[in-house]
Computed example of a mutant assay.
Amino acid sequence: MKLFNLDSPLMQFLNKVADLMWLNVLTLICCIPIVTVGPALTALHYMALKIARDEECYIARDYFKSFKLNLRQGIVIWLIELVVIILLVGDFLILRFSTISFGQPMKIVLAVVAVLVLFTFTFVYPVLAKFDNTVMRTIKNAFFIGILQFPKTILMMILSVVPAVLFVLAPQIMPIVFLFGFSVPAWADAKLYNKFFQKLEDQMNGVGQADGEAGAEGLEEAGEDERIFKDELDESIQEEPPRIGES
């Protein structure tokens, strides 16, 4: 029956579901040591973008390729993120139980800082997965992209907490969260930022929009490291800044 042909919409859908499930399990396993959360999330977004672009990929092999490639930087960025979160939470708790007169303005300032931090770390692992930069430039570029893609950044932040909210409201769906809680939001995120990333890749590769796909395929054939460029994303954004909310 055509319904069960490998190229049928049903089989393609089932294959994508299986890929996302396997990707989620790998991410959970690689997050267990805690210190490797950064490279695990980087590899997650690397694979999510491949799946969103319908690129041919081998989930386990390509996942661990990205994990290994971004191991050091992923750990450093994750530790920075962890320290920043601890400091912000600590400051909020101190202000909550403090009686100082300027406590409320300080809470507003901290809230603004927290939002900017969330904007940055929403994009930091997708940027690290696809673009080759130093740690500080990766964080800086993720911050600018988070601002430039403002509406989509908010949506991505919401998507990231949906599995946790669903688990709290309906603990019986724990098996679904276990199988898809990381990978499905990452795949949905990739769908949102794919066109924006493609524009940046095309700029770096010196190809037109029409040749973008061919350029990406050429990079994949060129070697194991598929990241696009070194230390150039911020200059590229400055040269041709996308409008806020533009795809």
Rank of each mutant, 00 (worst) to 15 (best):
I176M: 08
L49G: 10
M136S: 09
A142I: 10
D189R: 07
F92N: 01
V161S: 07
V37P: 01
I80C: 14
D234I: 07
S160H: 05
F102Q: 09
E56W: 02
V161H: 12
K191R: 15
V184P: 12
A129W: 04
T122A: 08
F143Q: 09
V76H: 04
W78F: 15
F64G: 12
K152E: 13
S236A: 15
L23E: 01
P126F: 11
T134K: 08
L116Y: 10
R227V: 00
Y125S: 05
L71E: 08
F102T: 14
M136A: 05
S98W: 04
I100N: 05
N141R: 03
L79F: 08
V37F: 06
D211P: 14
L116P: 04
Q12S: 00
Y46V: 09
E55L: 05
K130W: 08
S183H: 04
G218L: 11
T42L: 08
Q209P: 15
G212L: 10
V162H: 10
F92Q: 04
Y58K: 11
P185C: 07
L41E: 11
T153G: 03
N194E: 14
L69E: 15
P242T: 05
R137T: 12
G103Y: 03
L233Y: 08
F144N: 00
E226S: 07
A43T: 06
I154F: 13
Q238A: 15
P9K: 11
N5S: 15
Q198L: 09
Y193D: 02
K65G: 13
F180C: 06
V83T: 15
E239D: 12
D54Y: 01
I147S: 07
P33C: 14
P241R: 04
I244P: 12
A142V: 11
L82Q: 01
P242W: 10
T36S: 13
S8D: 07
S8Y: 07
M136L: 11
V89G: 05
V76Y: 09
V113S: 02
S8A: 15
N141D: 14
L219Y: 00
